[in-house]
Amino acid sequence: MARDRRLMAREGARPSYDPAGPDRALRAALQDLRTGRWMAMRALLADTTNWWQWTQRTQVLAAAAAGTDVVRAWLAEEPGSTHAVVMHARVAVERALRAQRERHRRTHELWIEAWDAAQSATGAAPHDPVPWVCLLALAQLDPEQRWEEHRAAPPEPMLPPGPWGLLAEAGKRDPYNREAHHRMLQFLYARGGTGRLAEAAGYAQWAAGQAPAGSALHVLPLYVRVERYRRDSGHDAALDLHWVAEDAAREARRALHSWFEHTHRGERSLLDLNHLAHALWGSLQFPDAVRVFDAIGPYFTPPPWMYRAPGRDRAVEIFLQARERCRAAADGSRP
């Protein structure tokens, strides 16, 4: 039966990128939001009862709402809504980060607006980790660490100073919050330099080492490895060696055994699944990669495949080639 499903998947449609992935309720809310309505978003968030899903859904909704006034309209209609206040902070942060990436002249202004919105959300939703995740996300706009809260002493001597207090506040509300730790990684990347990437790698190993079985933090080292690969992508001749090294293979196995094998399908981030499949394929662990490709199903995410070749269409081709090679090898066929 499993073999039949794999054969059908081989002959089926190309995988698609969908920010909602298999979350049908989120997809419906996104469709409503894109037409300028917020009622489905409000209903979805009211029905979201666990922090990992709340964090994920608010992030995806904010990315879709950042170019609209939908959340502003919701907040104006229901100024006492805690969920609307949190979404307002989410959208403000998304706009500030986009402005920074585009080198927009209003970046600093949008940063301050986002910081104010996130601070307000911490008071309106004192038990919610997302306002603290928002403040962590803004830390990457301060790579020189001019703000005191961005240069706090680390919990371990080998780690660099950073927004550790913000991370701790998110952790008090949702221990091992996935996005919070990814935001810390982005802060460390923003500080720049090869040595700083080594700091990010040390941080990812430390965070994964603290995490219980089933935590998405076990996938963090794979993201740092992709970031190093991305920065070295001008040196094509050595790229494949990056993935077959013993430490790379060990990181992939650890993510498989400590995260993937302890989680249910609906709990897994599509980005994490794609990073794990990519790492297992790159380190030639084909049978295990097939298990992850099967869990990915009809969806894919452009990162990390897009770093093998520019462009989303090429990313799909790389994904398909990797999946086919892994399945052929696992079936005992020639790739």
Rank of each mutant, 00 (worst) to 15 (best):
R6A: 09
M8D: 08
E11T: 12
A13C: 01
S16Q: 13
P19G: 06
P22T: 12
D23G: 01
R27T: 03
L30H: 03
D32G: 14
R34L: 06
T35K: 10
R37W: 00
M39F: 06
M41C: 15
T48V: 08
W52M: 06
T55V: 13
R57C: 01
Q59A: 12
V60N: 01
V60Q: 01
V71P: 01
W74C: 05
W74P: 00
L75I: 01
L75W: 08
A76S: 12
T82P: 00
T82A: 11
A84I: 08
A89P: 00
L97K: 09
L97W: 11
A99R: 07
L110W: 13
E113Q: 14
W115F: 11
W115P: 00
A125N: 05
D128Y: 02
P131Y: 02
C134T: 06
A137V: 00
W147V: 06
E149I: 13
R151K: 13
P157W: 08
M158Q: 13
G162T: 05
G165N: 12
L167K: 01
E169V: 04
A170T: 12
K172C: 02
P175D: 09
E179M: 08
A180Y: 04
F187G: 04
L188A: 05
A190E: 11
G192S: 06
T194L: 13
G195M: 07
G195E: 14
L197T: 02
P212E: 10
P212K: 12
G214P: 00
A216W: 10
L217V: 03
L220V: 04
P221G: 06
L222F: 03
V226C: 09
R230W: 07
R230T: 09
H235Y: 12
A237H: 11
A238H: 11
W243M: 11
A245W: 09
R250M: 04
R254K: 09
R254P: 00
A255F: 03
E261W: 10
D272N: 13
N274K: 04
L276E: 03
A277T: 06
S283T: 03
L284S: 09
Q285I: 03
V292H: 05
G297A: 06
P303V: 07
W305K: 11
M306I: 15
M306T: 14
Y307Q: 13
R312A: 13
R312V: 15
I318H: 12
L320S: 08
A322S: 14
D331M: 05
S333L: 15
P335H: 07
